[in-house]
Design a binder for these strands. Structure first.
Length: 563
RNA sequence: GCGCCCGUAGCUCAGUGGAUAGAGCACCGGCCUCCGGAGCCGGGUGCGGAGGUUCGAUUCCUCUCGGGCGUACCA
């Protein structure tokens, strides 16, 4: 199906006539310039400035050696209004802006298109470009915490946005099932196992002290009893850690699924070691001169790529670092044919960005194809009080507990409501509240209210006319036009959110649409005895419902029919 | 010390170099004999500070103050 993005279409049409006017003015010798500058057609903030506006004259002033206003005047004179059917008026305003005023006929055509597209409204044209979004990638050594939760909501929403922007999207979870922390995990599990089977063993100082480790060990004992006590340590650890990893990965999968997230691919770090890809990439980088030896360790020359210091890739004890595996991992990603790779990382990993991009360059890959979306950390509140998190005592609130307490919808909405750059204060009490203070309810209520109107209509035996027969030009009050206008923005909002990696834009958008709907609802009645008007308003309700539902889908939040 | 992110209304936050900087909450005052009042309408002296680039800076650059994070042969 052909996608609908009326805003983008209008911008392109206006840009075309502006370009045409520029060339025409140039030919007539009215305007002298080398290149058309990189100007924009934008929707002005103020309604008085038209439906669309361009800054082309301001950007051209220098090379044309004329005032912006004079240039704008020339351009305006070269444009004939009948080039675009809806174009009603052009004016020069402010410092030299060209403002374009359209009549609303394009707007009234949109409802029928939206109804035809249904749950595909918001999707843009297919781009045939593969993008991978890797997110959460939590260590399988503990529970999912609030950072993982925010990463999950941001990553999954971003993946949804990219799909609607026209990309082929793959969601990937990188399982850190190798390396140092797995060793420590194994030691911790073994110590707890021996302790719980009656042996006096000291727990490692840097071990995983959480309750969940003890619970895992209890599960192992339930299944295998004391049978591991007599084994040699290596065999015992192998059995225990294998069991624990499986249990943790199952837990992570189940919890994220409850959070509305399903991955296309789970990628094992250990597989990179098993296949020899880590050694392979180290050897290749060494041969190319990107690696040197110092005090028995191998170092990657990340300083030459703007990093603060060089990074160890293989330790003096012969074990590779997590960075070595990460290089092999990113090489593998691009060998899988992605045009674009996005990693969602916690801000505490920002120091890793420069050297990762440096490694890309060393490998001959284009670092611009890798975007790392850093998100600031989460502070959890309950009412006014901060909920302290402590790894040592294991008293953190985990994602499964959060979902249990506030629900998936509120949690997902809250995590994407703010820009990833912004610290997030998550108030669990507010997220649970069924009141006007809680934004997720405000939006869901709008959707439920519309559903209720249709239930009322059905109960009264009202039948909506077929879409083609409805006269949508009757939707001419300010509230109706404002709502319709914002609904028309949806596909373009998706494109902007994709381009700027801004999932929070969609949360704000859906709040906007809900607000405009509530305002309409309080000013006008849908069900009346004016049948043509009633039909037009029912159509408006239908497209509002579709837009709210599709935008909420993008956020992974449900759109209830009643509350 | 050095590096990254953030400082916008009382609070929590939006704001792709553009025209008169917005929203929610809180606070005050209004609005249903009528489709769900979990709603609507009205009420605002705010871009931490100082320079710079630009026709134009909340946005870009430098410095400065404040907060967060990082700065391991951890991940």
């Amino acid at each position: 199906m052909k996608s609908v993005n009326a805003i983008e279409t209008n911008k392109k049409n206006i840009q075309a006539i502006v370009n045409e006017a520029l060339r025409s003015a140039q030919q007539k010798g009215l305007l002298s310039f080398q290149d058309i500058p990189d100007y924009v057609i934008e929707v002005p903030r103020e309604k008085e400035h038209g439906d669309f506006a361009s800054n082309v004259a301001l950007l051209m002033a220098r090379q044309a050696r004329m005032s912006p206003k004079a240039i704008a005047g020339i351009i305006m004179d070269e444009i004939s209004l009948d080039k675009i059917q809806e174009l009603e008026k052009i004016e020069v305003a402010g410092a030299g802006f060209i403002n374009f005023f359209l009549n609303n006929s394009w707007l009234f055509e949109i409802p029928v298109q939206i109804v035809k597209m249904g749950n595909k409204y918001g999707y843009n044209d297919y781009l045939n470009r593969k993008v991978q979004v890797e997110f959460v990638s939590a260590n399988p050594t503990g529970n999912l915490h609030m950072g993982n939760a925010r990463g999950g909501a941001i990553g999954d929403t971003l993946a949804n946005i990219l799909q609607r922007a026209g990309y082929d999207v793959e969601r990937e979870f990188y399982v850190n099932d190798a390396g140092n922390q797995i060793e420590i995990f194994a030691e911790s599990l073994e110590a707890r196992y021996l302790q719980l089977t009656g042996n006096d063993i000291k727990f490692p100082d840097n071990g995983y002290a959480g309750q969940d480790v003890i619970q895992t060990v209890k599960n192992i004992i339930r299944e295998k009893g004391n049978s591991l006590v007599e084994m040699d340590s290596e065999t015992r650890r192998k059995i225990i850690v294998e069991y624990a990893l499986q249990e943790k990965i199952d837990y992570i999968k189940a919890t994220l699924k409850a959070f509305g997230i399903e991955y296309d691919h789970w990628f094992s770090e250990q597989s990179l070691h098993d296949s020899g890809k880590v050694e392979e990439v180290i050897k290749w980088l060494t041969d190319q001169g990107f690696i040197y030896e110092h005090e028995g360790a191998l170092w990657f020359k990340s300083v030459q790529y703007g990093d603060e210091k060089d990074e160890v890739i293989k330790r003096a004890n012969g074990l590779t670092t997590y960075f070595a595996a990460d290089i092999a991992y990113h090489k593998d990603k691009f060998e899988r044919g992605f045009d674009w790779v996005i990693n969602v990382w916690g801000a505490d990993h920002h120091g890793h960005v420069a050297r990762m991009k440096g490694a890309m360059q060393a490998l001959g890959l284009d670092p611009a194809k890798l975007d790392i979306l850093l998100m600031q950390l989460v502070r959890l509140y309950r009412g006014g009080n901060i909920v302290r998190m402590s790894k040592r005592t294991g008293t953190t609130i985990s994602l499964d507990e959060l979902i249990e307490e506030v629900g998936k919808d509120a949690a997902r909405f809250f995590f994407v409501m703010r820009s990833p750059d912004s610290h997030l204060d998550f108030d669990m009490q507010l997220a649970k509240e069924k009141s006007q203070e809680n934004p997720v309810y405000y939006v869901q209520y709008a959707h439920a209210r519309i559903c209720s109107i249709f239930r009322q209509a059905a109960a009264a035996g009202v039948k909506m006319a077929s879409v083609e027969e409805i006269d949508s030009t009757l939707l001419n009050s300010q509230e109706e036009i404002d709502l319709l206008r914002r609904i028309a923005d949806f596909p373009d909002e998706i494109l902007i959110a994709a381009r700027t990696l801004s999932p929070h834009r969609i949360a704000r958008y859906v709040l906007d649409v809900a607000g405009l709907f509530h305002s309409f609802y309080n000013h006008h009645r849908v069900l009346t005895n004016d049948e043509p008007l009633q039909n037009a308003r029912l159509l408006l309700m239908q497209v509002t419902q579709i837009t709210l539902k599709n935008a909420l889908d993008t956020l992974g939040v449900s759109a209830p029919e009643q509350m």
